[in-house]
Computed example of a mutant assay.
Amino acid sequence: MKGVLLNNLGSPDSTETKDVKKYLGEFLMDERVIDIPYWKRYLLINGIILKTRPKKSGAAYKKIWWDEGSPLVVISERFTEKLKQKVEVPVELAMRYGSMTMEKGIKNLVDKGVTEIFLAPLYPHYAMSSYETVVTKAEEILAEKYPDVKLDTLPPFYNEPDYIKAMSSNIANHLEGFDYDHILFSYHGIPERHIKKSDPTNSHCKIDGSCCERNSVAHHTCYRHQCFETTKEIAKTLNLKEGTYSNSFQSRLLKDPWLKPYTDFELEKFPNEGKKKLAVITPAFVADCLETLEEIAMEGKEDFLEAGGTNYKHIPCMNDNDDWVDVMVKWINDWEEAVSS
């Protein structure tokens, strides 16, 4: 019997400091998120970060928290319910971190008789701190507890025509009636070293402005390249004029070099360049979360307007819109057909 496991990042159970601390502790202790030796990671996180960050993050979560709970979780649940109505196989939702564990999701599928799981990491792009850690965790759980269950995984879909079409349609709908002079594609940031660690050739990725344009097997696991390709495909679909859009990366942590340009720097710079009417898109996310609702829609807007901008619009993620649901339905049906033939 076949089944589907949808997977996203996760969320604290509440905005209370203790719940945020527990969530951040699990998230940041993942060796694929902060990739330094365990003892250094432990001291850094437990000795420094978790002393102050949970209270600050809790305050940020309070700004975006819904009556039903975490926006990311609520949206993901709505998406899952819509999906269940359109496919014939069991579907479970799990999170990489937090109380909605992957182990629970897998167990729920197995308890229903599922022996073949289609894992769908809800990340369009490959990164060791998102896509890779989900796949690895699923493999570890199955190897330890359900060795007879087969696992197939949805590849990164950053340039899949169905995804690009749904994204472009969502963007066009939200841009209707908004007078903009620039569009910023703001992607989740990762350390530059993650790009090089994910390079199977150990030589292609230079992060020098040109390596993403040269064909290489490294592109299959290169987050930076895949982000740029998403922007190119959406720009092509929407017929955006060259010079009216650009890329940036948000959410830096620690002092290491992260992918550039930085979103907050760009937002402060644009008004001085005459770009005073801005639309911001966050294509690394399929569901709105803290990084989109607080960092971009709230803080980003404030930074841009304070720098002299006049019009600012955050474009919501696809969330549970029907086009996006239908895309996932198609991918699940294609998988079912492939494994049955």
Rank of each mutant, 00 (worst) to 15 (best):
M128A: 11
M128Y: 02
M128G: 00
S129Y: 01
S130V: 05
S130R: 10
S130Q: 11
V134K: 05
V135A: 13
V135N: 12
T136Q: 14
T136A: 08
T136H: 09
A138V: 03
A138K: 07
A138D: 04
E139Y: 03
E139Q: 14
E139S: 15
E140V: 08
I141P: 06
I141V: 14
L142F: 08
L142E: 09
E144Q: 15
E144Y: 13
E144V: 14
Y146F: 14
P147C: 04
V149C: 07
L151Y: 07
D152H: 14
L154V: 13
P156F: 11
P156N: 04
P156H: 01
F157A: 07
F157C: 05
Y158C: 06
Y158M: 09
Y158T: 10
N159K: 11
E160S: 08
D162S: 12
Y163M: 09
I164V: 11
M167K: 09
S168A: 11
N170T: 07
N170L: 08
N173G: 11
N173T: 15
H174R: 10
L175C: 09
L175F: 11
D179Y: 10
Y180Q: 03
I183D: 00
L184E: 03
F185S: 03
F185P: 00
F185K: 05
Y187W: 11
Y187P: 02
Y187R: 01
Y187E: 05
H188T: 01
G189H: 02
G189I: 01
P191W: 00
P191C: 01
H194Q: 05
I195Q: 05
K196T: 05
K197W: 05
K197P: 01
S198G: 03
S198C: 12
S198L: 02
D199A: 01
P200L: 00
P200E: 09
P200Q: 08
T201P: 02
T201S: 10
H204N: 03
C205G: 00
I207H: 08
D208A: 08
S210T: 15
S210Q: 15
C212P: 02
E213K: 15
R214D: 11
R214I: 15
S216G: 09
S216L: 09
A218K: 00
A218N: 09
H219S: 06
H219Y: 13
H220L: 15
Y223P: 00
Y223D: 00
R224I: 06
R224E: 07
R224T: 06
H225Q: 14
Q226N: 09
Q226I: 12
C227F: 07
C227Q: 10
C227M: 11
F228S: 12
F228M: 15
F228K: 15
T231H: 13
T231V: 14
T231M: 14
K232C: 05
I234N: 00
I234F: 06
I234V: 12
A235R: 09
K236S: 06
K236L: 12
L238P: 13
L238V: 10
L238R: 04
